[in-house]
Nucleic acid binder design. Sequence first.
DNA 1: CAAGTGACGTAGA
DNA 2: GTCTACGCCACTT
Length: 103
Amino acid sequence: MKAGFFERVYDAVRAIPKGRVLTYGQIARLLGTPRGARAVGWALRVLPKKLSHSVPWHRVVGAGGRISPRAGFGPLVQKKRLRAEGVRFRGEKVDVGRHGVAT
DNA sequence: CAAGTGACGTAGA
DNA sequence: GTCTACGCCACTT
């Protein structure tokens, strides 16, 4: 697997503290590619199920805490998981004002 | 090497 | 507030 960037994404997601959520753009920025949000989402898209239980992909959301309609096994599942982590929701979006790094 | 794709992001209407 | 269009990066074929 030469997918170094991908591993980089997995590592970043894995480093997400519980009760906190990050956006693709935010992760991409941490990796050094502020415009590589798509590449980040792609990394999670090809995320092997083997790692799906090791990588809290459900803590990764879109800008503003929006959940994409193509999320993992279903955006509903992700939302439920986030709630189980203690994350509050604002309608269909994550309460970024509390968990989102975005102030 | 070139083209296509994709869990995105921002700007404009 | 919602939808559309373009641009960005990385990976596959």
